[in-house]
Each structure stands twice: as C-alpha cells, then as structure tokens.
Design a protein around this nucleic acid. Structure first.
Lengths: 161, 161
DNA sequence: TTTCAACCCATTGACGCCCATAAAATCCCA
DNA sequence: TGGGATTTTATGGGCGTCAATGGGTTGAAA
C-alpha cells in the first residue's frame, strides 16, 4: 500500500519524540525519502507531512512561477521557509520543532491522520472538532447528492448495487 | 537534500559573527562554493545568500537581457555590484558587512530562511511580518485557484474529500 | 601602536544513536 | 482452533557527539 490511511494517536515522550505509526513508516520507506518532510498546513492548525511525493507537489507548484517574481518569493517563503526535514530515529520517531508545535497547538499528544499522498499531525482535541465538522459537511453533501440523484436518474442508486 | 529548507534564528556575537545553520552548510558544501555569496534582495529588506546555484540563477536572469542595454546595466549593478562573498570560518560563521546589516535592518539577531536554491537573512521581527503577509497572499492565490476549479465543475470540491 | 581579520580552543545544551521494556499483534503448531 | 511463543510497536532512558556560541591569540594592514 503506498497511501497514508487511517489515523493514530500517539504520545510525546519526555524528549518530545513521537512515533510515526508503523503503517505510515512503510509508506515513507517505499517513497524513498530520507527523513520526514513537514510544513504547517496553509489553512488549518495542522502539519502536513510526507516524503518525495509531498515535496514534489510543492516543487511542482513553485517551478511554474517566474524566478525572482514576487509571487515566487511569497510561495517559497510560505512553503519552503516554514517547512522542515525531521530526522527519523532508528525506532521511527521524530522530534517536532517548537515552532511546529506552537502552530498546531500540540501538547503531550498528537493525532496522525492519513490523507493519501501525505498525512497530517493534529492536536487530538482539535482533530476531533475538525472531524465532526467534516462529518457534518459530508452529511449535508450526501443529502444534496441524494436529492439530485433522485431527481435526475430516478433509479440510479438501485442499479449500482 | 540539496535545497535550503526551514528557518532558524541565530544571534550575532560580540564580534558580529553569525552561525550559518548546519543544514544550510551541508547544502553549501555540496554546491561546491567556497564562501558565501550575498547580495541585498531586490525588493525586500533581506539578504539573498547562496553558492553556485544562486549565482547561476542570477546569470541566467542577466543572460536574458540585451547586452549593453540600460536594463541589463541596472540589473547587473543591483545584483552583482552590490554583492559580496563572505568568508566562512572553521565553525561555519560569517561576518556581515556594515552595509548589509543596515540594508536589512539587522541588530543582534537574524533569521535565516530557506528558499530552495538560496536562503535569505532577515531581521527576525521583519521576517515575522513578511511571513504573515506571504501566507495571506498565498492563501488568496490558492482560493482563486480553488474558486476557478469550483466554477467549472460545480461539485468537484465534494468529490475530493 | 591600534585595529581588524583569520585561526584556534572552550563550554554547554541539544540532538543522534544505541539499548531496554511492556504491551499488542502475529505466527505457529499441537 | 486455541493458546503459547515470537515478533513488532510504542515508549523510556543513557550517553557520546555536534552545533551554536563565547572568547583568546596571532599576524598583517593602517
């Protein structure tokens, strides 16, 4: 499996170390990236983490922009300047920098959430809230889709199963 | 890794020396440049630093411009004429010239910010402000892109999650 | 002399690397 | 198929090394 899936809640030890879940480590290993690439998520109080897949996504975004353009400077400051490459120790743990912890409001525990190409690190309480919100949205959306489906092709739902 | 990433805040000692972060030093070493190439950033109160990679970028920029054109003169004056090559001591420190410090408003501390091919040196307070600004700009730009995407296939956002 | 830069050494706190343990998951075989 | 044995995982802690910082000394230029 080369996707980050599921979520896990782990504790930080006295030295501030967190274990990356074994399932995520195998994905990282397959990705072939040495260490863990981390940057603050642009619009959430979470940290985006990954390997070459994530870094490539970001570099692709930057490569489109004109060198020396203000836009590019902005992007590279916001994306590269705030990101870090954390070392992963022999037990599969990383130490989050103070800045990253502050950004995500992290205390003594974190929730690591698979997102496919990347995974996120959250403060557990905040993640619960975020998840509830997401569920609500999905429910509304489902309702919408259901209504639409019922109107447009009346028997579509049955045909699927 | 051959990119300057992450950011660090270091102090100047009584002799005006600043440590280049170890992570940046390894990139510089790999780049094969002796010393540190520095020039005032064109449109920000910051210093652009790097090695051969940065020099190459600048020369690439200049090569596009008509030889002997006024524009080219301006650029080469601004980029090459104001640049310095600082010596790096055995502990990985450099001394910023008075002019450079004045340009960037540097006092007793600096923030060194990875930008991929180069890194920047900022007065910490100014950098914080600049980063906030950069984040806003990037978020807006992202929103624009998202909006565009959302307009064309109206339900795309839902399909994502 | 005075100044400043190049070089060398010292300190301290953080980090990398290694080994230990308990609990959970997995395996394996009767 | 059930339950003991083995492996893996998350977590804890010790210790040596390195990075960031401070300071002293020499030598050449002013």
């Amino acid at each position: 499996m080369d996707l980050y899936l599921s979520h896990f809640t782990n504790r930080l030890d006295a030295k501030g170390r967190v274990s990356i879940p074994a399932a995520f480590r195998t994905v990282l290993a397959r990705d072939g990236f040495e260490g863990l690439y981390v940057h603050p998520s642009l619009d959430m109080a979470a940290l985006d983490c990954g390997g070459n897949a994530l870094l490539g996504e970001i570099q692709g975004l930057l490569s489109v922009l004109e060198p020396y353009s203000v836009e590019r400077e902005m992007f590279s400051t916001a994306l590269l300047g705030t990101s870090e490459i954390l070392k992963v120790d022999s037990e599969g743990r990383v130490v989050l920098s103070e800045g990253l912890k502050v950004y995500a409001g992290i205390g003594s525990e974190v929730t690591l959430v698979g997102q496919g190409q990347k995974f996120q690190i959250w403060e557990p309480e905040r993640f619960r809230a975020h998840l509830d919100e997401a569920k609500l949205r999905v429910r509304d959306l489902r309702k919408d889709l259901g209504a639409r489906r019922a109107v447009i092709p009346p028997r579509a739902q049955g045909a699927r199963e």
